[in-house]
């Protein structure tokens, strides 16, 4: 199970970097963060899992999508071929380093004295209920932002400000 989740996390993280469509890239990042959150839950880091889902998969995705919608689609920046080669190369080097040294390094972390308790539903619904209200607010803000910024001009006027005296 852990392996499956790790592969999912890596695959969607790589996609988030490699995809040229910003919207798809942001969604890949959100999916990757869901895999990471599930890993947190399996490793009994329930708080971290809840924060990962609420912040990265929720809030930050809303932020990214709002940012993408605020920019126009005609602003594609040409990327040099060098970047396409450098990232996979960098990724491979890091993976090798991880395999060689991470196990040893992880053993050096002192025992964490945190007091996380409760299942996912307990933490989400019972302990962080107020945050859920905030999540609803953040998602509402994102949806309303899209509705407001992509509205069709109605009979009262357009986006222009000011009067007609100038």
């Amino acid at each position: 199970m852990h392996l499956f989740l790790l592969i999912g996390l890596l695959a969607f993280s790589v996609l988030a970097v490699l995809l040229r469509d910003l919207l798809k890239s942001a969604i890949s990042l959100a999916v990757a963060s869901i895999f990471l959150a599930l890993l947190f839950f399996l490793m009994n880091a329930v708080y971290a899992g809840v924060f990962e889902i609420s912040v990265v998969a929720g809030l930050i995705t809303v932020l990214f999508i709002t940012a993408i919608t605020l920019t126009r689609g005609d602003g594609d920046v040409a990327e040099s071929r060098k970047h396409r080669i450098i990232f996979p190369l960098f990724f491979l080097v890091l993976a090798v380093v991880d395999l060689l040294v991470m196990k040893k390094l992880l053993g050096q972390i002192p025992a964490i004295q945190g007091s996380e308790s409760g299942t996912f539903s307990q933490v989400l619904w019972n302990q962080r209920t107020f945050d859920l209200v905030g999540q609803v607010g953040a998602i509402s803000a994102g949806v309303l932002a899209v509705l407001a910024l992509f509205r069709r001009d109605d009979m009262h006027g357009t986006a222009s400000k000011g009067g007609s005296h100038e």
Binding site: L144, L147, A148, R151, D153, D154, M155, H156, G157, G162
Partner: peptide
Amino acid sequence: HYGAKANYYA
């Protein structure tokens, strides 16, 4: 002047 008042207030 801006229109879309309901969305603005929301």
